[in-house]
Design a protein around this nucleic acid. Structure first.
Length: 643
RNA sequence: GCGCCCGUAGCUCAAUUGGAUAGAGCAUCCGCCUUCUAAGCGGAAUGUUCCGGGUUCGAAUCCCGGCGGGCGCACCA
């Protein structure tokens, strides 16, 4: 059990004894400012209001009942009613020794498995076919992967999903454009060629209305199984998949082909979804909107005074949807939901079938949700992880913040249709959009190449490795070239990933090479360096670490490292609570800071006694174990023995 | 216009979700390599937390009103 939950339990019990169990909920316990305490319990202030008694009196009462003698020094009351807890050094040492001895637990950095394993779908990366992956895919891939890794590590059944954009409107443009190109589809294309076809097609689509119309028709043809369209589709898709695999492999993203279920996968389910949705939700709506089509956009014209040309006054109150319903509007089949209005304050639809009969991303997302939560997957020819039912308990999307409204509408639709109920547990599925900001250049504007194009991932990652190589060559010229190349790759890629993960995902972040490859501060290279230093000690030690030791925490630095190591599991829980890997980055950076201070002031190999040497080696080993789990298992970065 | 997100040191970012004297790194200044990787460590200096109200024991955090920036708002994803 983590320190935090142990203390929470103790305080909860004390509060129950003092004031009755109805007050004993989750008392607030948090790691405190080291100036005052290792941990503090702030429950007294909150309780004082409920009890109508002064907070310090409440705190005194809690202290009278709390049992902490085995864990910490006598707790102190401070300020308005903080209860400060200083963990006893002998207790810390004992806990650490236990962790060190239990090799299975040590390999997990002391992180326990979740009490119950849930099925969690993580939907991330989601590149488009026929386009080279670019910086726009970077955050989703990196964040989603870190979240998926962390969920899996604590023991959940994680279903990774790469929702590839391979069957939507944009593909129609490609088909239409291809007609004029006379492509040789017998030969494997290059992703760079496809990328330029895509750009040409997009350009024509924008400037040529006739082309645009035919492109939309091509989508319908594709979605209804036209063989010529499908042949081209396969041709493009194969190369696109190869390209994505290459990028994922280079970046260390744990998405395999088995995880790929793009728009096309749901194609034949789309009419079904629309039909089921029409059955699950009322048709035509409530109140004054019943039955008629074009209910929100009557073809009325207003004169300069805001009067209809027939003389009636346009309703000044916005029309409000009170309950979700399906209706046809302007030829398109739509879901209308409470709380969504467009810029004219008219109800905003979620379009599930276009006027021309084609489906778009909302329909696909709904189909995917139905598939992930409800659909039975017992067909024997399906491959893992499709070979068993998912019945997801939680579904997480890492896509950029601009899609927040889209997901909010899709989730509301699912809930209105009661499709969010897990068929096995009968509990509501947790639907989460984990939005993130943009990547900006040093000038604070969207990260683009000089010519204004989006930066290709392949080039960006190549540059990261090149730059890292130059740094390594400068810092460690003795390193043989072969070793240096491995280091450069790990450092370069690690720096890019860490730069993304270390910052709160909701904010935009600036991509500045010199900053993310910096050797000091909260960067990938610094953390990797700390790990490499530890490994170096063990190489020099020339002995296998003992399996059991007495931990001695006689200096403040040793105690600080010990305290930090034991906080790890609480941080991992917080990451999963908020889906914010930057908590983990901040923690690991602090751990490295504590370790470096220890490293400076406490000789390990030349410690004053063999016992102290063993103890310090154990501290090094435990720090390395936490770094390995945090950096490698959870964040997906490579670690180095030497750099 | 409506909605969502953001605004913290010169710069880039934290702040365990309402807790104590708001913390790091960079840049600036001072000190430390004949001892385990100095890609490091120790120290100094740096703040009207965009502004104004409110809520309360206590606000960067919550509420209201401004200002500034980003994004979204019918057949693209």
């Amino acid at each position: 059990m983590s320190i935090e939950s142990l203390l929470r339990e103790r305080f909860s019990r004390a509060i129950g004894l003092a004031f009755g169990s109805e007050f004993a909920g989750e008392p607030m316990v948090k790691a405190g400012d080291p100036k005052f305490a290792d941990y503090q319990c702030n429950a007294a202030m909150a309780l004082s209001r409920q009890l109508g008694r002064p907070p310090r009196e409440v705190a005194t009462e809690i202290l009278r009942h709390v049992q902490l003698a085995d864990v910490c020094e006598p707790a102190q009351i401070a300020g308005p009613g903080f209860i400060n807890v200083r963990i006893s050094t002998t207790w810390l040492a004992r806990r650490l020794a236990e962790l060190f001895t239990d090799s299975a637990s040590k390999a997990r950095g002391g992180v326990a498995r979740a009490a119950q394993s849930a099925t969690v779908v993580v939907d991330y990366a989601g590149p488009n076919i026929a386009k080279e992956m670019h910086v726009g895919h970077l955050r989703s891939s990196i964040l989603g992967d870190a979240i998926a890794r962390t969920l899996a590590f604590v023991g959940h059944r994680v279903v990774r999903q790469n929702h590839v954009g391979d069957f939507g409107t944009q593909f129609g443009m490609l088909i239409r454009h291809a007609k004029d190109l006379k492509l040789d589809t017998g030969e494997m294309p290059q992703i760079s060629d496809l990328d330029s076809y895509y750009k040409q097609a997009a350009q024509r689509d924008k400037s040529d209305p006739q082309f645009a119309v035919e492109a939309r028709q091509a989508v319908v043809a594709l979605q209804s199984g036209d063989s010529e369209a499908l042949r081209l589709w396969h041709w493009i898709r194969d190369e696109s998949r190869r390209h994505c695999r290459e990028i994922f492999e280079f970046l260390g993203i744990t998405l395999s082909e088995a995880d790929e279920r793009g728009e096309s996968f749901y194609a034949d389910r789309l009419p079904l979804v629309v039909q089921r949705l029409s059955e699950a939700l009322p048709m035509g709506g409530d109140g004054p909107y019943t039955g008629t089509s074009d209910i929100f956009h009557p073809q009325r014209q207003l004169d300069a005074n805001g009067l209809n040309v027939d003389g009636t006054v346009e309703a000044s109150e916005p029309q409000i949807v009170t309950k979700a319903f399906v209706a046809e509007s302007q030829g398109a089949l739509c879901v209308f939901l409470p709380g969504f209005v467009d810029k004219d304050k008219k109800p905003l639809p979620l379009i599930i079938r276009k006027g021309d009969g084609a489906y778009l991303y909302a329909t696909t997302d709904l189909a995917a949700l139905y598939f992930r939560i409800i659909e039975e997957k017992t067909t024997p020819d399906q491959t893992a992880p499709l070979d068993q039912n998912w019945h997801a308990d939680r579904i997480i999307y890492t896509t950029d913040a601009r899609q927040a409204q889209h997901f909010s509408m899709v989730f509301d639709t699912i809930r209105a249709a009661h499709w969010d109920i897990n068929p096995v547990t009968k509990l509501p599925v947790v639907l989460q959009h984990a939005p993130f900001g943009s990547i900006l250049g040093e000038d604070g504007k969207p990260f683009k190449t000089r010519s204004g194009e989006s930066v290709k991932l392949r080039e960006l990652l190549y540059e990261a490795v090149q730059r890292a190589d130059a740094v390594v060559e400068k810092k460690n010229p003795e390193l043989p070239i072969a070793a240096r190349q491995l280091v450069a790759r790990a450092v370069g890629i690690g720096a890019v990933k860490y730069a993304d993960l270390r910052q709160d995902r909701i904010t935009d972040y600036q991509f500045v090479w010199d900053r993310l490859l910096a050797l000091d501060g909260n960067t990938g290279p610094y953390l990797q360096y700390t790990f490499a230093r530890i490994r170096s000690i063990f190489r020099k030690a020339g002995e296998v670490p003992a399996t059991a030791v007495t931990i001695m925490l006689e200096t403040p630095q040793e105690r600080d490292v010990a305290r930090r190591i034991l906080q790890f599991s609480d941080v991992v829980l917080a990451v999963l609570q908020d889906l914010k890997p930057h908590y983990l980055c901040t923690y690991l950076y602090d751990l490295c800071g504590s370790f470096s201070a220890f490293y400076e002031s406490c000789p390990v190999l030349k410690a004053a006694s063999p016992e102290l040497r063993q103890s310090r080696l154990a501290l090094c080993d435990l720090t390395a174990a936490v770094l390995k789990v945090g950096l490698s298992d959870l964040l997906g970065m490579e670690l180095l023995e030497e750099m």
